[in-house]
Amino acid sequence: MKSIGAAVRDPGSTRRNKTGSWRTFKPVADKEKCIGCGLCYLYCPDGCISLEYDPDYDYCKGCGICAEECPVKAITMERE
């Protein structure tokens, strides 16, 4: 249906905008170390980390919060 008045009828459609291209450093996890605490999942400003720590690189802006906050230092930031 055509929308008028700048109404957007396509929920979640910012997914079309792949913010992964903003990234200069990329988080990489050592899954052996991961204790599954879920903090990275909760803290991610872009909601693009799954509970099993599989970052969605289409959207990850590379802010590094997950690496910084990981209590067991399982995540490192690597240059793209």
């Binding site: 929308s3 008028i4 008045g5 700048a6 109404a7 957007v8 009828r9 929920p11």
Partner: peptide
Amino acid sequence: PVNAYLRTDDPMSLGTLA
């Protein structure tokens, strides 16, 4: 309403940035 409503079963965003 056909153009604008706030329904949880058919979500839309009103008043977006153009």
